[in-house]
């Protein structure tokens, strides 16, 4: 299971990096979203996969013992998903507004910020 997830994470990273290197804005957004997913899955996987074991303290015992599931990675991912969702929504609106204002979706054409001031 870990190996499978590792492969999936690797593919997501590869696809994400490939997409953010494209000139088209829409592909860049997809790339950023894939990278966020890859990072979330990475946290999930390195936080150790435990199957069918709850994260509860057994009755009568004072603390966790033996093998137990760690709920913290899921909590981290949940937070990261919520934050990522907000940021991605903002980015999509920003890119759409840029497209409407500048009339292009080619990132290579957006270089007025790097040019010297016009005479």
């Amino acid at each position: 299971m870990t190996l499978l997830l590792a492969l999936v994470i690797g593919c997501l990273y590869a696809a994400g990096i490939f997409l953010i290197l494209r000139r088209n804005m829409v592909k860049v957004i997809f790339g950023l979203i894939l990278l966020a997913h890859a990072a979330n899955l990475l946290i999930f996987t390195v936080g150790r996969l435990t199957k069918g074991i709850p994260a509860f303290v057994p009755e009568g015992a004072g603390m966790l013992s033996g093998e137990f599931a760690d709920p913290l990675p899921q909590a981290l991912i949940l937070t990261a998903i919520v934050i990522g969702f907000g940021l991605q929504a903002f980015t999509i609106v920003l890119f759409k507004r840029t497209w409407l204002t500048l009339g292009t979706e080619d990132l290579d054409l957006m270089k007025t910020t790097d040019e010297p001031p016009r005479e």
Binding site: I20, L32, L35, L87, L94, R97, T98, L102, M110, T112
Partner: peptide, 13 residues
């Protein structure tokens, strides 16, 4: 908007 595209993309990355 152009400046923001660069800023936002690199920061999300």
């Amino acid at each position: 908007l152009e400046g923001a595209i660069k800023y936002v993309t690199i920061n999300l990355l």
